[in-house]
């Protein structure tokens, strides 16, 4: 275990290298790539993915998986917009919608931790519950979010894109956990659930907490999504989940638990964003776009696994 902790700070390295590689490629390929305006438009688009990857990372470190985060985003988004449309205030409607998202997280955590059901299936079921609720609340896209929020989200402050505030908040939330003894317990649990349990750590509570954390961060991601789209859409989150898992793995998280960092999550998701931007900018025939972006993502996963493999061989 000691070996792994000393290597912790390097876990994000492969994803950082991938990010740097694509920054260089895109600097040549995309005009004005290295400008404030480009950075701003990049982060307005990809901040939700960054946040969701952080949310997913925490659950993965604890040895679980959460595939309901995309549906939580949809649920929070439509609840917020619908309540806003019904005359609720900005903050009150926001709090209620975040609570709706948290409720799904509580359900996930409770069933996984205390009923001991496979997290993949639990979150598959709850993603259909949350997605169904979102479709019930708002059967088709509509409504509008606060115009001030939308304007603020697209602005830059001293060259720094506003959406980065959300990334900072999520990162601080992560540090608030990782730097306390509970962080150590989280990693210990992910590494070896049974030993951790035997040593007196309340593993069920920590498991529970990872799902609540991920729902909370997914809720913040939903704020970013709503600010980016300015409207409600019951299926808006659907495509995020699987990309968040892929980004987390590229960022160095182990699906076996116990390994991962928020920094890796951030680099992994930025890499995905850059990869997609590259495909958009390369102007290739439309029939090959899906194949290319799929292949880039797969290569990223393989690359990240190859570097991890060298570290892990000793444990095999």
């Amino acid at each position: 275990m000691n070996t792994r902790f000393s290597l912790k700070r390097f876990q994000a390295l492969p994803s950082l290298l991938l990010v740097l590689l694509f920054v260089v490629i895109d600097a040549f390929l995309i005009p004005h790539f290295l400008s404030d305006a480009y950075a701003s438009s990049f982060f307005t688009s990809y901040t939700p993915l960054i946040l969701l990857t952080i949310a997913e990372t925490v659950v993965l470190i604890g040895g679980g998986i959460d595939i309901s985060i995309g549906s939580i985003v949809s649920l929070v988004n439509v609840t917020w917009v619908t309540l806003g449309g019904a005359g609720w205030g900005f903050w009150s409607s926001l709090v209620v919608s975040l609570l709706a998202g948290l409720a799904i997280g509580v359900l996930n955590g409770a069933v996984v931790a205390w009923l001991r059901v496979s997290p993949l299936l639990v979150t598959l079921a709850t993603s259909s519950i949350a997605g169904g609720l979102a479709l019930w609340i708002m059967p088709y896209p509509g409504g509008s979010a606060s115009a001030n929020l939308v304007t603020w989200y697209q602005a830059t402050f001293a060259g720094i894109p506003a959406p980065l505030l959300f990334v900072v908040i999520a990162y601080l939330l992560w540090l608030g956990w990782a730097l306390t003894p509970w962080g150590l317990r989280l990693f210990a649990m992910g590494n070896h659930m049974h030993k951790t349990y035997v040593s007196g750590v309340p593993v069920a509570s920590i498991q529970f907490a990872t799902y609540v954390f991920s729902a909370l961060v997914a809720g913040i991601a939903a704020i970013a999504v709503t600010a980016n789209t300015g409207a409600g859409d019951p299926t808006i989150g659907a495509t995020y989940t699987l990309y968040a898992i892929a980004a987390a793995v590229i960022g160095g998280v182990s699906l076996n638990g116990g390994v991962g960092t928020a920094a890796g999550a951030i680099f992994g998701s930025i890499f995905l964003g850059l990869a997609f931007s590259t495909v958009y900018a390369a102007n290739m025939p439309s029939f090959y776009q899906d194949l290319t972006s799929g292949a880039i993502v797969l290569c990223g996963i393989i690359f990240a696994s190859l570097t991890k493999l060298r570290r892990r061989r000793q444990f095999a």
């Binding site: 995309i30 438009s41 307005t44 688009s45 789209t229 495509t239 958009y280 439309s286």
Partner: peptide, 18 residues
């Protein structure tokens, strides 16, 4: 540019504007 889903389309439109 072909994309699936709103988030990807927003990113694609951004990229076209750029």
């Amino acid at each position: 540019q072909n994309t699936n889903g709103v988030p990807a389309q927003i990113a694609a439109v951004q990229s076209l504007i750029n």
